[in-house]
């Protein structure tokens, strides 16, 4: 088995046994999907077109919140946990490469975040279909699909990068949580603003947001990778 896979499986095995992480990965999506479904069914029958638009935009925003928040829950514990348990040194004593370690930690958060997000979206559509009898066409437009399949991975990457940087500096999970949650806001602020706008989400905004995120991800990953060197981890991390 290659080392990256070994590390990923270990991360997930540990996460499964961590209540805080499970809460973020399971409970949060359930609440958000339930709320979205409620809003859409409400909006579907509403007469007020502006009210309807706001409800649709807000529920789309939920599916962009998930990929940003889930990695936070996993990555904080996968890095702070490693520090608290003093397992970094034995881990670094193995022939694992710095890049494998970095990728393992990053993918351990990004993959579940996307899987959970897409399952949630599927569940969302399925439940609505069950309740209303059809899927509202507003949820299958180009901006929606571009957001859910294009922006989500970028948001997840950005969030995981920030969380990894913050966690490498933080000595406990609580502090890491607080600082990283602040840091993911810039990634979703435009969408928050948009969710209260009076027109349906527009593809141009999604593309613009995507472009900004690509640049931000490259920058964040560059710094995160530099932090993930043996020497740095052992001598500089708090």
């Amino acid at each position: 088995m290659n080392r990256l896979r070994v590390l990923l499986l270990k991360e997930w095995r540990e996460s499964m046994r961590n209540k805080m992480v499970l809460f973020g990965v399971i409970f949060l999506p359930v609440i958000l999907v339930a709320t979205s479904v409620y809003m859409i069914t409400l909006g579907d029958g509403a007469d007020d077109p502006v009210g309807q638009i706001i409800l649709f935009n807000t529920s789309l925003m939920y599916f962009l919140l998930l990929p940003a928040i889930i990695p936070l829950a996993i990555a904080v514990y996968s890095i702070v946990g490693e520090k608290e348990q003093t397992t970094l040194e034995p881990l670094l004593a193995t022939p694992i490469s710095d890049l494998e370690l970095f990728l393992g930690k990053a993918l351990a958060s990004v993959i579940p975040a996307l899987v959970v997000n897409w399952i949630s979206f599927g569940a969302f559509l399925g439940i609505i279909r069950l309740l209303v009898g059809s899927v509202p066409l507003q949820t299958l437009t180009a901006p929606w699909l571009a957001s859910i399949f294009g922006l989500s991975p970028l948001l997840a990457l950005f969030s995981v990068g920030i969380t990894m940087i913050v966690s490498s500096r933080a000595s406990d999970a609580r502090a890491a949580y607080q600082f990283s949650s602040l840091a993911i806001l810039p990634g979703i602020i435009p969408l928050v603003v948009y969710s209260s706008s009076k027109t349906l989400v527009d593809l141009r905004l999604i593309i613009l947001e995507g472009g900004v995120l690509v640049v931000a991800c490259v920058a964040v990953m560059y710094f995160a990778i530099r932090l993930f060197r043996r020497e740095q981890i052992l001598t500089r991390w708090k």
Binding site: K10, R13, E14, R17, Q85, T86, T87, E89, P90, A93
Partner: peptide, 14 residues
């Protein structure tokens, strides 16, 4: 080489 580090460093949940 094998290293026994200063603190045992085990994954407590595993």
């Amino acid at each position: 080489v094998g290293v026994l580090t200063e603190t045992p460093g085990l994954y407590r949940r595993l």
